[in-house]
């Protein structure tokens, strides 16, 4: 999705995203559940009734602006204008024909007229991964690609410590970003920094990468479980990202019984492990 440079991510949830700009709220995206192709008008009626009841928000469908945005044929679109006493704007219901998901994009434009050019740009560039291919994540300087089957499970953005957790069947992937690295590595080395933040085995780490971007790797099997399918294998990899002045780490956990291989962690983060 292509958003203006001055917008920044304000809130990220499992089913919603909120963007802010300097003068206030900019955009809210909600993953609104299942969508049945050809029934967008029905969804619009239900949506208008529901938000009127729950949030006293008035929603009025707009039909004239549909043809102004050139969209991928896999998306069904219905524009609307919304207003609450404190603010107003435009929005769009988008239904993906492939993955059958419904999205609500609500723009805080302070106008209910025809969409602004940047609103059209955001809507035209909005795409859903549909659970196929790699999922691309770019959050507060942390850029990583995850296999399509992984879903965002939880996240934590504290100053100096970011964590994003993904889950798939029998697998778990956690990305960490700690910074500023120049401060953290002032008195401690990379291994000590990682050990103070993540529970790691007592074994010495392996090393990899090249001279410019060396990384440390731990691989271990968790807990002595009686059955193979209960055993968990873990891999943890960490490195110092000089360009971003951060320490980046990825941990993958796999339950043995599912026969899933451990992920190639080094290739997942952009700018981290080279």
């Amino acid at each position: 999705m292509d958003v203006p440079m001055d917008w920044h991510l304000s809130t990220l949830g499992v089913d919603h995203l909120f963007f802010d700009r300097e003068c206030g709220a900019a955009l809210e995206i909600t993953w609104a559940g299942k969508f049945y192709p050809g029934h967008l008008e029905t969804f619009m009626v239900r949506f208008a009734r529901r938000v009127q009841k729950c949030f006293t928000m008035t929603v009025t469908p707009i039909s004239s602006s549909l043809d102004r945005v050139d969209l991928d044929s896999k998306m069904e679109v219905a524009w609307f204008a919304w207003a609450i006493p404190a603010s107003r704007g435009q929005g769009v219901l988008m239904g993906c024909r492939r993955c059958r998901r419904l999205f609500i994009l609500r723009f805080f434009t302070d106008s209910t007229d025809m969409p602004d050019p940047w609103v059209e740009r955001v809507v035209a560039s909005f795409q859903e991964n549909c659970g196929k291919g790699m999922g691309k994540w770019k959050l507060f300087g942390l850029e990583l690609s995850t296999p399509g089957c992984f879903r965002l499970s939880s996240y934590l953005f504290r100053p100096g410590s970011f964590m994003v957790d993904f889950k798939a069947q029998g697998q778990r992937l956690t990305a960490h970003s700690w910074g500023p690295a120049s401060f953290l590595l002032l008195k401690n080395d990379l291994e000590t920094v990682a050990r103070t933040r993540v529970s790691l085995p007592d074994t010495n780490p392996g090393s990899g990468g090249d001279e410019q971007c060396p990384f440390l790797v731990w691989e271990w099997e968790g807990g002595a479980r009686p059955f193979a399918f209960m055993r968990q294998r873990h891999r943890f990899i960490t490195c110092h990202n000089l360009g971003g002045n951060r320490i980046i780490a990825l941990k993958s956990s796999t339950r043995g019984g599912y026969g899933l291989s451990l992920l190639d962690l080094a290739g997942m983060i952009k700018g981290g492990f080279g």
Binding site: F140, G141, F157, P159, G179, S182, F183, N245, R246
Partner: peptide
């Protein structure tokens, strides 16, 4: 100075 995201720096500095 510390190559931080502006939002992250804002939270740290204001705290």
């Amino acid at each position: 100075t510390h190559t931080l995201d502006i939002r992250e720096a804002e939270v740290s500095v204001t705290l």
